[in-house]
Design a protein around this nucleic acid. Structure first.
Ligand SMILES: [Mn+2]
Ligand SMILES: [Mn+2]
Ligand SMILES: [Zn+2]
Ligand SMILES: [Zn+2]
Lengths: 148, 148
DNA sequence: TTACTATTGAGAATGGATATCAATATCATG
DNA sequence: CATGATATTGATATCCATTCTCAATAGTAA
């Protein structure tokens, strides 16, 4: 049941009675090889290269569409704009975010996940999704140690 | 070295060459007994009761001031507006957030904190702050189990 | 009091995201 | 292939939270 994103999009459009368009296909292609965690504005700039007439609204709408179709994940980091990443590997992961250069490192930690659900259970809370973000400085942004 | 918030505010204002005003004192009082996690708008409405002429800008500025003074903590949950909570007990804590009624439950978990810093160390990442939020339904917002 | 400034409040401005709407593209149907 | 129904697009207006601007006012040290 593994489908590539294009097929997944077509299937979703079909199922919802929506239409396949040049813009949607092209934006998907660009989104997938843009690398991770792009904002709508970044994607808009990229998209304009191959589609000069593209509008902001279309990019926003298309990213929302991808999210509904399960192709993209919406992320809200602390920089105040929505970012999207491909939902390829559908394994959940969390993030280390560099406050200086913006680099984002992904990680998974089974033990933390386990402890989280323990906390939730203890409070009789039904978790639907969660977010763990560590903000700070990545290795190359840290002040260098000087020899002693 | 334990200071109550009013003293802390006065000390901060003093140290920065800023002035003590009726608005700042009153907003602090209201903020402290408003309970947790108020938005600027909520606080504005509360403040208008005792200070009908108060302006939005003043509330926003004052909350930022409290944050700089270490009296308040700024929180960015996923509902798109900034919330503030008193920094009274200066123990770090994380949040369970009900998506239906908005209730927020606080928790601390030493083991999770420990595992987080392990992850960071492994990536040679210098964490400055972090955020762990579990979104879902609180106990009273969950569909009731029916007897079997 | 005075004089110097920090602060305030009204309203304008900002920035990201969404809504509106006429023109256009897609696509099932004949 | 032509047609008609309708989903989509792009320009732009609008929204909303927050910040900025600036003239009037209030705090404070002298
Ligand atoms: Mn990611
Ligand atoms: Mn809290
Ligand atoms: Zn960095
Ligand atoms: Zn609830």
């Amino acid at each position: 049941m593994i489908r590539n994103p294009s097929e997944q999009l077509e299937a979703y459009l079909d199922g919802q009675g929506l239409k396949s368009t040049r813009q949607r296909d092209e934006i998907l292609r660009i989104f997938l090889d843009a690398g991770h965690h792009v904002s709508a504005d970044e994607l808009y700039r990229l998209a304009r290269k191959s589609m000069p007439g593209i509008g902001y609204a279309t990019v926003y709408r298309t990213l929302r569409l991808f999210t509904e179709a399960g192709i993209a994940h919406e992320r809200h980091f602390d920089d105040g704009l929505t970012r999207y990443e491909p939902h390829a590997k559908d394994t959940h992961h969390d993030h280390l975010i560099c406050l200086r250069c913006g680099t984002i490192i992904e990680f998974e930690n089974e033990q933390i996940e386990k402890l989280q659900s323990d906390v939730a259970r203890r409070h009789r809370f039904a978790v639907q999704n969660h977010k763990l973000e560590l903000y700070g400085l990545c290795e190359s942004c840290q002040p260098k140690k000087r020899k002693s």
